[in-house]
Design a protein around this nucleic acid. Structure first.
Length: 231
DNA sequence: GCGACAG
DNA sequence: ATCTTGTCGC
C-alpha cells in the first residue's frame, strides 16, 4: 500500500505551485470508454472540527441503482480556502477510493473540475492524481462568467473564461437553482454534460452526488459505519 | 481600493 | 460545510 497523501503542511504558495504542475497533466477529451458504474464523492464535517467524513458511493449506470459505498474518517489540518478545496478533501477521498473493491468508470465529485482559476478544481485534481475519469458538480460558482439559463429542466448555458468554455450551468429541475458542471479528467464538457443529464432524476442534485451527500452525513451522525459496504 | 469567493 | 425556523407547492 502507498503512504496516504498528506497536504497538511503545505503553504498556499506551495499549493499553488502544485496546482500549476498538475495542470500539465490535465487530460480533457471526449469520453472514449463505456460507463457501467458511476461514483459519487463527497465530504461531511462538523463546523470547527478537523475530522472529516469522506465517502464514495457506487451506482449502476444508467439504472442508477446503489451498488455499494466506501466511508473513511480522517483528521485534516489544511483549512478551507476558496480555490484550494482539493488540498483539504482529496487525501480522504483517495483513501475511500482505494478501499473500493471495484472502481466506477466515472466519478462525480462535489465541487468544480476545470472551472477554476488554474483549471485545478477538486475534480480535476482528484483525476490527475488518481488517473480516474472525473467530472465536477458544484452548487455555486467559483470562477467564470455565465448568463442565467432558462428556468426549465434541462436548460443550460456555457460557463466561460473569455472565449474558453470551462463547463455548463445546468438547470437539473424546473424552477430551482442551477448546478455547475465541468470536466475533471479524461472527459470534456460535452461528455460531462451528457453523463450528468443521465444521472438527473427529480431532484436538484444528480443521483451520485445526492447519494454521496446522504451517505457521508449518515456516517458522520453514526448511522453508518466506516469501511466498504456492499448494498 | 473594491467585490468575489467550490466545500 | 452545518444548524434552524418558516413558507411554498406537488
Amino acid at each position: 500500500m502507498h503512504d496516504p497523501l498528506n497536504y497538511d503542511t503545505l503553504t498556499i504558495p506551495e499549493a499553488t505551485a502544485l496546482q500549476q504542475t498538475l495542470r500539465e497533466q490535465l487530460l480533457i477529451q471526449e469520453r472514449d470508454f463505456p460507463v457501467n458504474i458511476v461514483g459519487g464523492a463527497d465530504i461531511s464535517f462538523n463546523k470547527f472540527s478537523t475530522t472529516v467524513y469522506a465517502g464514495i458511493v457506487l451506482l449502476s449506470f444508467p439504472a442508477l441503482q446503489p451498488v455499494g459505498y466506501s466511508l473513511v474518517k480522517k483528521e485534516v489540518l489544511f483549512p478551507y480556502v476558496p480555490g484550494y478545496l482539493a488540498f483539504r478533501e482529496v487525501p480522504a477521498l483517495l483513501e475511500a477510493w482505494q478501499q473500493l473493491p471495484l472502481k466506477p468508470d466515472v466519478l462525480v465529485v462535489d465541487g468544480h473540475g476545470i472551472a477554476h482559476p488554474r483549471r485545478m478544481g477538486i475534480a480535476a485534481h482528484f483525476g490527475a492524481v488518481s488517473g480516474q475519469a472525473t467530472l465536477g458538480c458544484a452548487k455555486k460558482k467559483l470562477f467564470g462568467k455565465y448568463v442565467e439559463p432558462p428556468t426549465e429542466k434541462g436548460a443550460y448555458t456555457p460557463l466561460l473564461d473569455k472565449e474558453e468554455v470551462l463547463g455548463v450551468v445546468l438547470r437539473t429541475k424546473t424552477g430551482v437553482q442551477p448546478v455547475f458542471i465541468s470536466p475533471g479528467y479524461k472527459l470534456d464538457v460535452r461528455s460531462s454534460l451528457a453523463i450528468i443529464s443521465q444521472c438527473t432524476g427529480r431532484h436538484r442534485l444528480p443521483e451520485p452526488t445526492r447519494h454521496a451527500h446522504n451517505a457521508v452525513n449518515r456516517f458522520r451522525l453514526g448511522e453508518l459505519g466506516e469501511g466498504y459496504t456492499e448494498v
